[in-house]
Nucleic acid binder design. Structure first.
Length: 422
RNA sequence: GUGGGUGUAGCUCAGCCGGUAGAGCACUUGGUUGUGGUCCAAGAUGUCGCGGGUUCAAGUCCCGUCACUCACCCCA
């Protein structure tokens, strides 16, 4: 019997044991970020609507039809963040992080984002991302560093089928000319009305249309890769050289375009072949004009957003074997009130020693408490009854093998620590 | 947002041409007065997603609605 209510349409929620996996992969990312010198940010979940209008771009689908926008009691227009980069950059500028220390400012954050799309597996109205940004330098080494960080994280989770799709979208010097060239080409094709409208608003997007009928017509389309200016070409070559130095594989994907207007130069996507239509598990790129677009100084930057929901799905699809640390290693089975007190204290002592411990609650009989021990996933059960108390010992049972030995009560913690490390 | 598919026990699902709801797993209890997982026996569990309609009778047919899901679109 559930209540009269359910979570709003398309909101992804996690409960144990899946939520424990969710927390564990986020912790694994935090460690990667720390090792590479990225600081943590805790930020606003909603913003002035204009931040996204100007940052993400009016011509994008995200801004034009997918934002959760509302008016607060003071009549201000606010929007639940549909992505992280605009918020992170706004916060970095607002808190003057770019003036306080060395550039680039290296930061990361995580949490929910919101888009009003029709939900399906891997696409939710409330979804979760990891976001990492390096702000304040054009050095191609930060492009490679951020890409490598994401790739190392995927690898640390045991994922082996993640593909890195790489492209360069040029800059304010070379893209306008290419854009015009592409528009001229596209106008000559046989396309539906919505796509023709897109040619005028956001022509690059037409390139990664998935429909075969459209792709077939695109074979001779001009590509950004053939029209990069000298500086962008040099930058792109350097990034690829650095990735190769690190042994990170990628696929040059000249048709790759991302749906957010701010991207310049390096643009990429992490893709997982087992996830169907929602195969993009992460993506990012450089946004050298974004800071100015939102009214700030000229500060180049690069970063990515990685989807936690889709990463969980990828882990499950690959059966990757990454597991959260166990919630219980030792389970106390008490028989009687005195044993309950002693094992309650033992659990506390074990936890202080860094060992996950739990005990049966509710005055269960031996059989029921042993069943709880089994279900807890613990390696060891500590059984304590009148007889054992009288003898000053407890029964230590290894659940997988059934081997049971008596251990003096005073030696329990040290014995468990020793046996668990084997 | 567009076009399909599916909603039956905690989970996975069966349920024929409308006739008053089932299986496996999980769960509870017992076989075991101090031993789980295996085995044996017994038991409990459903607003058949929700609302309306047709009918003597609806899980089954019709309409609506909600949720999930597949593709497009979008992107994480």
């Amino acid at each position: 019997m559930s209540s009269s209510f359910q979570a709003p349409k398309g909101v992804s929620e996690y409960v144990p044991p899946r939520a424990d996996l969710f927390a564990a992969i986020r912790s694994a990312f935090a460690e990667q970020a720390r090792l590479a010198g990225y600081g943590y940010l805790e930020l606003a979940v909603f913003e002035d609507t204009n931040l996204f209008r100007r940052g993400v771009g009016e011509s994008t689908d995200v801004v034009s039809k997918e934002m959760y926008t509302f008016e607060d009691r003071g009549g201000r227009s606010l929007t639940l963040r549909p992505e992280f980069t605009a918020t992170v950059l706004r916060a970095v500028l607002e808190h003057n992080l770019h003036k306080q220390g060395a550039l680039p400012v290296k930061v990361w954050t995580t949490g929910p984002a919101f888009r009003a799309e029709r939900p399906q597996q891997g696409r939710y109205r409330q979804f979760y991302q990891l976001d990492l940004e390096a702000i304040g330098t054009e050095d191609p080494r930060v492009d490679a560093e951020t890409i490598a960080l994401a790739a190392r994280w995927y690898a640390s989770l045991g994922l082996t089928q993640v593909r890195l799709l790489l492209n360069s979208l040029g800059c304010r010097e070379c893209r306008p000319g290419y854009r015009t060239l592409l528009q001229e080409f596209l106008r000559g094709l046989d396309l539906d009305e919505a796509t023709r409208a897109r040619i005028e608003i956001n022509p690059l997007r037409v390139l990664d249309d998935k429909r075969p009928a459209v792709q077939a017509q695109l074979t001779g389309a001009p590509l950004m890769a053939d029209h990069l200016c000298a500086a962008c070409q040099e930058h792109h070559d350097r990034v690829r050289e650095l990735l190769a130095d690190l042994g990170i594989a990628w696929e040059d994907t000249p048709r790759l375009v991302r749906g957010l207007d701010y991207y310049t130069r390096t643009t990429y996507e992490f893709d997982h072949p087992l996830l169907g239509a929602q195969s993009g598990i992460g993506g990012g790129g450089r946004y050298d004009g974004l800071a100015e677009d939102i009214g700030g100084p000229a500060l180049p930057g690069i970063g990515f957003g990685l989807g936690l929901d889709r990463t969980i799905l990828a882990l499950e699809a690959e059966n990757a074997g990454f597991e959260a640390a166990p919630r219980c290693e030792v389970f106390g089975v008490p028989l009687g009130a005195e044993a309950e007190r002693r094992l309650f204290a033992l659990a506390d002592e074990l936890r202080r020693a860094g060992i996950a411990a739990d005990t049966a609650f509710g005055g269960k009989k031996l059989k029921g408490a042993m069943k709880d021990a089994d279900r807890s996933g613990a390696r060891f059960a500590v059984i304590l009854g009148e007889r054992d108390l009288a003898a000053g010992e407890a029964q230590l049972k290894e659940l997988a093998t059934g081997d049971q030995t008596a251990v003096p009560l005073t030696d329990l913690t040290s014995t468990l620590r020793e046996r668990l490390s084997r």
